[in-house]
């Protein structure tokens, strides 16, 4: 778990595809390794958080709690990013991420991430793309559930 490995891991993250390798090394230096055991939560829905995690090894489930119970919506694999959206606005986490196996992560602090966004607009665009995708999905789901509700009446 050296800096070189961490920088390489960051380079594989889609979000950071356009960031200069040297800058990624700096980001790796500013971040810290955090280990989670299977079953431990990386973040909990509804709680405040000002850090993002990059999965280095292991897998984690994303689950969302709603009125209908808890639903697992995605499985994260190495090089996936967790919690980058909570950094942009001081809002509670919108999902719970639980380690399925033992998980090694790189934790990126809020300020370091924001600095990176400022320096590399490409990263911001990536983040926007992710947001847009999520918006589209949410809108579709909303429309679907409205339609479902109407047909029930």
């Amino acid at each position: 778990m050296s800096l070189e490995e961490d920088a390489l891991a960051l380079a594989k993250v889609e979000l950071f595809a356009n960031v200069a390798p040297r800058r990624l090394k700096l980001l790796a230096l500013a971040s810290s390794r955090v280990l989670f055991e299977g079953g431990q939560a990386l973040c909990v829905q509804g709680q405040e958080g000002d850090e993002a995690f990059i999965l280095i090894s292991g897998e984690a489930d994303v689950s969302i709690k709603s009125a209908n119970g808890v639903a697992v919506v995605a499985r994260l694999k190495p090089n996936d990013v967790v919690g980058e959206l909570a950094i942009l606005r001081d809002m509670p986490r919108n999902a719970t991420v639980t380690a399925v196996t033992d998980v090694a992560t790189l934790r990126i602090g809020k300020q370091d991430f924001l600095n990176l966004l400022k320096e590399f607009p490409e990263v911001s665009i990536e983040v926007m793309r992710a947001l847009a995708e999520r918006l589209v999905r949410t809108t579709t789901e909303l429309a679907n559930s409205r339609a479902a509700a109407k047909s029930e009446n």
Partner: peptide, 20 residues
């Protein structure tokens, strides 16, 4: 050597160096 190489020219990331 590593630190000078990483931080030598970039002056905006001083707070990372301070934290180290």
């Amino acid at each position: 050597a590593i630190i000078v190489d990483l931080f030598g020219e970039v002056s905006d990331n001083i707070q990372i160096l301070e934290r180290l």
